[in-house]
Nucleic acid binder design. Structure first.
Lengths: 338, 338
DNA sequence: GCTGGCACTCGAAACGAGGGAGTGCCAGGC
DNA sequence: GCCTGGCACTCCCTCGTTTCGAGTGCCAGC
């Protein structure tokens, strides 16, 4: 177990390194922080911290920088979540109010988060699997062609084209639409499958294939993982850490273009606790020197999706966590109102 | 007027510079191209080309690089559009087939273009103002709250929340829905306003405000420029020209995050001719060393929107133009089918 | 267990020489 | 009149050397 002072030294190192982006030495540390001991003592502490793997030196005779393990300790034990100023809170509110639809909400959120944290923002659309049905619409585009439109309680709209083997009459379609809605409106999407299973049975034999086709597409839409949509913003902020630049920005940009990677970054937890994934904890080559701060958001207690930011491991964790949490709360409110 | 050979020299310079990314000198030129003259002659030609502003040298005693004016001449007079190989064509087809909805089409297109050209791809969603109405849906969410869903013939779906001053009955809503659809389905969005202007008059006095409100939101949705949606992809390709890197990538990324800038980049022309905007022709600081190749696409002859790529002025114009044109054609086909 | 002192390390910046690619210009030849 | 070979000149780039300084580890002393 590390002594109190050594933890204090680690905290000071993290803070200074985040601020200056340069390895921090023992002398500079004692000058910038009131540690009450001499540089020599700090050097001894640093040697211990290095042995334990919390800090490292880029090369002999340079200052120290925190390791992933060091940041982890910092986040878990040494740092809190910095609340936003009232001015910032007001800015968030102003910015998010006035969104006209879900796309707009998500778009504004992503820009807001990017601006607030000066990092790359990632916002997931409300997940279908965690939403409820507000309305199902069936539109006949051509005799054997139907458009399925799904509207969720979070305002999300999904559409699908369905090619039927045989033409479907307007009356059948209207009938199906009515029955479908009476059964599923207000229900969670995950509960839908058993509710519609026997629906084809109540139709004329001739119409059953078409009805079954529509239902199949409906269920497919619910299940497909690619239906998890994600919006990204603030990529320009990547250029701010122009340290070892070209080497590091490339793989990050590439990773951020992959839907699947983004989803994994945000994490699987379905509650709204905040997760901080640091460096190698992301298990993705190329994101080894980036951290992710993510949190669930939703209209109620339960999270319908996640949002967060991606930045260098050398980031202002307390500030970032504060911003992410605050934005998630406001987005939840907005969603609850609509 | 430049002599034939001098044009040939310019072409050679552009080609070599695009290939090597390094200023090209007279000796290297004669070695790599069969110009039939000596380096000294080429030097004289280069001096003339420089006087005319087609090429420049970064500093005395360095090779020459093309100026924007030089690229312009190259694109206009010296280069054609390189057709894609059949393998590439097949790849496009395979990649775009199997898209399930409009979002999917646009998403696939953006990835395809980025991959094909190895540059940043930009795809605009079919513009509302150039589409026709397929269906208008009105859903009652709460007594005084309506969701308006607009579906276009290109498969685009837009939704809007409408807060009415007073509750609107289901029958009124159904009535309005029916009348609205019978009037506007199949019509161009730009033609809609006069078609619905007198619609409130046919309703009970009590219901007119609500009806008018719905119509107002509908018209607003059509007009608003921000409804021009755009998808972006391949940002990681920016890192490929890591020449004067950090200086140049930052403003480009920033510019690409602004919806308005992107729209302007794609250009205003509504037909499907290809436009190439080179360097300063973009009139946007930060995009001074990037070029944009854009073209309209649509299901018929007329363009419903634009797509294109953004890359360094030092790009392979013939190849890029070929890829952009080919992709636009395929997307048009896909759209026509749906 | 803390501190001051000291020798040592090693990267970053500054300096300077050399090489080389490229240029402009000129005189001569077809 | 246009092309060509020759030549002197210009600068950038590379590379080795040097210097400088921040930082370290270790040790003896309090």
């Amino acid at each position: 177990m590390l002594s109190e002072r050594r933890l204090e030294v680690l905290r000071a190192i993290v803070q200074d390194y985040v601020g200056t982006e340069e390895p921090v030495g023992s002398k500079a540390l004692t000058e910038r922080h009131r540690l009450g001991v001499s540089p020599a003592t700090v050097r001894n502490d640093m040697a211990v911290l290095e042995d334990e793997g919390y800090i490292a030196q880029p090369h002999t005779s340079a200052g120290r920088i925190p390791t992933d393990k060091g940041y982890r300790l910092f986040v878990d034990k040494l740092a809190g979540v910095k609340p936003l100023s009232t001015a910032e809170r007001r800015a968030i509110q102003n910015f998010l109010d006035g969104a006209v639809d879900l796309d707009d909400v998500v778009g504004r959120t992503v820009r807001l988060l990017a601006q607030l944290t000066r990092q790359v923002a990632v916002v997931q659309y409300p997940s279908l699997t965690r939403s409820s049905v507000r309305h199902v619409e069936l539109l006949s585009l051509a005799p054997a062609r139907i458009m399925l439109v799904l509207i969720t309680d979070t305002g999300r709209v999904e559409q699908r084209l369905i090619d039927c083997a045989a033409p479907v009459g307007e009356t059948v379609l209207a009938d199906l639409r009515a029955r479908l809605n009476s059964r599923v409106v207000g229900r969670r999407f995950t509960d839908v499958p058993p509710l519609v299973q026997d629906l084809p049975d109540s139709f004329e034999l001739d119409d059953r294939p078409a009805v079954a086709g529509v239902l199949a597409t409906l269920l497919e839409t619910l299940v497909e993982e690619k239906e998890e949509r994600i919006m990204l913003g603030g990529a320009a902020n990547l250029t701010r850490f122009n340290h070892d630049f070209p080497l590091t920005i490339r793989p990050v940009l590439e990773a951020l273009e992959e839907q699947m990677v983004l989803l994994k970054l945000l994490g699987e937890a379905t509650d709204s606790t905040m997760t901080v994934r640091i460096g190698h904890e992301n298990f993705h080559e190329g994101l080894n020197s980036t951290s992710v701060v993510a949190v669930g958001y939703g209209s109620g207690d339960e999270a319908v999706a996640k949002l967060g930011v991606v930045g260098p491991t050398r980031m202002d964790y307390p500030g970032t966590m504060g911003a992410v949490r605050a934005v998630a709360r406001y987005v939840g409110q907005i969603l609850a109102e609509s």
